[in-house]
Simulated scan of single mutants.
Amino acid sequence: MVSFRSTIKALSSVLALAAVSNAQISTFINRSATGYSASFNVPASGNDTFIQLNGPASAGWVGTGIGTGMKGALMFVIYSDGNGGVTASARLGLGEFEPEFEESILYELLEGSGVADGIMTANIRCSNCREWNGGSLDVNSTAQNLLWSVGNNEQIATTDKSATIHQHRLYGFYTLNMVAATGGNDTNPFTSNDSVVSTGSSIAAPRTKADRVLIAHGVIMGVTFVLLFPFGAALIRLLNNRVPNALALHRGVQIFNMILVFIGMIMGVWRSSMTGTQWRSYHQVMGIIIVCLLPLQAVLGQMHHRQFLITGMRSTWSYAHIWFGRIVIILGIVNGGIGLGPELANASRGWVITYLVVVAIMAALYALFYLLKERSREVRRQKSIPLKEVM
């Protein structure tokens, strides 16, 4: 007669076997990048790791990485092979630079990989992804740190695993429960109907050196073009007839602002060199042009001042200085808005709205100030009161 204890033991063994036979998958679904998801499965035995990566084909490439940051992370990047399939490239992160293809990582694409309905899918079996030079995958972690990234819509169609990829348009960090991802012995868990799926969570991205430089660049340029340059332009009108050295103050403030802009430009170029994204956008090219126009604006101001000392009234140089300065400021403000876009700073909606509101307020104040000063000029002209030099 079979004992009750034996029956329970046998039943437990069957249930355990059934649990092992079903692949356990942990999945991260990205809400900010439509179509992006990454899934992991750790088989119950052996050293393989299964990874599924999905992402929009329109992005050009998508990737996921194992690690807390780019440096030392093991990444898988996928892009179209040009024939309806995908190329999967295993890469090691070097820091805030393009990751390099790593030949020592052994992996293969499995059934179900390809491009369909605008979504790239790669089902990957990797035989040595649990430890590499610079990092490791902790299969016993309930919150394994991982990275995600989405390309900048630059189309790639090649089977070359070391193909050049440019800076991501979107990126972030997430965690997966690798304990919940452990189980099953399928040769391809992503095509199994018996897989059990659990979900991961997004986590806040730690700020890198490049991020801090980018923030400093944006703050310096935004404050200077939106606030300080207009203030410097209005300063001589505000202080004219009130202090004897209004022109010197105007000149000093604007020179200081120019120095700030040059510092901001250097930080922007520095950040681009960190990420290998020099001359990749209109914002960068337009920014350099705007900065180069500033010395010309200073020359126009000096010519205006010389002519005014001779004639005591505005000249062609005066209007050139005034309107050229306004155009440069407007271009700088517009370029700042471009820089906040998803392909560069990828600023949040709140920051974009804040920038636009501040710009609108400053534009309204400057317009009101200009109208009041012009009205004052007209009144003084009618009374034939001599005008001092104004901008």
Rank of each mutant, 00 (worst) to 15 (best):
G252M: 11
N30I: 06
V14A: 10
I203N: 05
S162F: 04
M303S: 10
L92R: 14
D81K: 12
G69V: 14
A19H: 01
A180L: 15
M286C: 10
L294T: 12
G336R: 07
S37P: 03
I333K: 04
R169K: 10
S348L: 07
A143V: 07
H283M: 08
T277N: 11
I353V: 08
G332K: 01
V14D: 08
H283K: 12
V269S: 00
S104D: 03
M286W: 14
P342L: 11
G69N: 14
Y171E: 12
M274W: 01
Q52M: 14
N152I: 02
G341T: 09
D138A: 10
V291Y: 14
G184C: 00
G55D: 04
M70V: 04
G151E: 00
G337R: 04
L227H: 03
A248H: 07
E102Y: 01
F97Y: 12
R207E: 12
I29E: 15
A298M: 11
I51R: 09
I215N: 03
T159W: 03
M1S: 07
W323Y: 15
S202H: 04
W61V: 00
L106R: 13
T7A: 10
L368R: 13
P386R: 08
Q144R: 11
I78Y: 07
F76T: 05
L74E: 02
P99W: 02
I329F: 00
V359H: 03
T27Y: 08
Y366A: 06
G332D: 06
